[in-house]
Simulated scan of single mutants.
Amino acid sequence: MRILLVEDDPVLREVMRLSLRDAGHRVDEAGTLEQAAHYWHVQPFDAVLLDLNLPQNATPDSPLANGLSLLREARARGDRTPVLVLTARNRTDERIAGLDAGADDYLGKPFELAEVEARLRALARRTAGTDDFSEIGRLSLDRKARRFAVDGALLELPAREFEVLWELMTPPGRVVSKRSLSDKLSDFSESLGDNALEAFISRLRKKLVGSGARIRTLRGLGYALERGMDT
């Protein structure tokens, strides 16, 4: 997933960024409301992690007073990106306000990083309409364990190839454009070009031989993972 992390505490933001990247996600960080609003306008995300107490850092006439106003502005323009809000643990009023403004879930501080990842997975499944387990041919994906297997045997993949196959299998059969794949596998500090993406696809095709699944190229549209003949 490509995630927008909106948190003004630089230490917590860095810890969360590293944890999410270790889990295989692409993370764009915003420490101010204005930076977050800009990123959210110019780039589609799979999920947003939003601190409601983010302070204003703009001119006095800025419409963004806190994280809640950022969320309301996004929902008002029709943006339905799943949002997990971060709140003070004992502030019930914050949680209610966040949910009323359009948040999909909330998490009180302090929290366990493993719970952040679990809640993001749940939001992604709900949005994509997928289950924890997907299968096509003899290729399977266990999303909780973040594990691909062929006939039950672990399919080991480098990080980027893993991310490409994950997107193509969420769910299998749907067409995923090159632009969408590149966006999900990039962040504002590192962009994935077409040549690199095609190289990942080529290597994956070789590794999927005999799995009963294949990656099909649909010219002008993108790629789809579908059931294929074993070779």
Score class of each variant (00 low, 15 high):
residue 67 G to L: 01
residue 185 L to E: 07
residue 155 L to T: 02
residue 118 A to C: 07
residue 4 L to A: 14
residue 64 L to D: 01
residue 155 L to M: 10
residue 25 H to G: 01
residue 110 P to V: 08
residue 14 E to P: 00
residue 201 I to D: 02
residue 169 M to E: 02
residue 148 F to I: 09
residue 102 G to V: 00
residue 182 S to Y: 00
residue 200 F to W: 04
residue 82 P to D: 01
residue 201 I to L: 11
residue 199 A to C: 02
residue 169 M to L: 12
residue 217 T to Y: 07
residue 90 N to T: 14
residue 129 G to W: 06
residue 55 P to F: 04
residue 63 P to D: 11
residue 36 A to K: 03
residue 129 G to S: 06
residue 65 A to N: 08
residue 148 F to T: 07
residue 10 P to Y: 09
residue 125 R to I: 04
residue 147 R to Y: 02
residue 53 N to P: 00
residue 161 E to G: 05
residue 176 V to A: 08
residue 99 L to T: 11
residue 211 S to A: 14
residue 193 G to S: 13
residue 185 L to F: 12
residue 119 R to I: 12
residue 147 R to D: 02
residue 142 D to L: 10
residue 23 A to M: 06
residue 28 D to G: 11
residue 113 L to V: 15
residue 114 A to N: 10
residue 65 A to R: 12
residue 114 A to Y: 03
residue 100 D to Y: 07
residue 229 M to L: 12
residue 49 L to P: 00
residue 62 S to M: 07
residue 175 V to Y: 01
residue 73 E to I: 05
residue 26 R to M: 15
residue 60 P to R: 09
residue 30 A to T: 07
residue 54 L to Y: 03
residue 44 P to H: 09
residue 107 L to P: 08
residue 15 V to W: 02
residue 22 D to G: 15
residue 184 K to Y: 01
residue 167 E to T: 11
residue 211 S to M: 04
residue 44 P to K: 06
residue 83 V to N: 00
residue 1 M to L: 02
residue 43 Q to I: 15
residue 2 R to A: 09
residue 173 G to W: 06
residue 92 T to R: 12
residue 19 S to T: 14
residue 1 M to S: 13
residue 95 R to G: 15
residue 108 G to V: 13
residue 125 R to V: 06
residue 181 L to D: 03
residue 166 W to R: 14
residue 221 L to Q: 14
residue 25 H to K: 10
residue 1 M to Q: 04
residue 173 G to N: 10
residue 143 R to E: 05
residue 39 Y to N: 09
residue 200 F to M: 10
residue 72 R to W: 02
residue 54 L to H: 02
residue 197 L to F: 10
residue 219 R to I: 06
residue 54 L to V: 15
residue 143 R to N: 05
residue 43 Q to R: 13
residue 229 M to R: 13
residue 17 R to T: 15
residue 45 F to S: 01
residue 128 A to Q: 14
residue 142 D to A: 14
residue 79 D to Q: 13
residue 128 A to N: 13
residue 146 R to S: 14
residue 216 R to A: 15
residue 43 Q to K: 07
residue 43 Q to A: 10
residue 163 E to K: 06
residue 57 N to S: 14
residue 29 E to K: 03
residue 193 G to T: 10
residue 112 E to I: 11
residue 84 L to G: 05
residue 199 A to Q: 12
residue 96 I to Q: 15
residue 208 L to S: 04
residue 151 D to N: 13
residue 210 G to K: 09
residue 110 P to N: 11
residue 230 D to G: 06
residue 57 N to L: 09
residue 66 N to E: 06
residue 166 W to G: 03
residue 13 R to E: 02
residue 186 S to T: 12
residue 112 E to A: 15
residue 151 D to C: 07
residue 174 R to M: 11
residue 11 V to C: 03
residue 67 G to K: 02
residue 59 T to W: 03
residue 21 R to P: 00
residue 167 E to I: 11
residue 63 P to T: 04
residue 196 A to L: 14
residue 55 P to R: 04
residue 26 R to I: 02
residue 112 E to N: 13
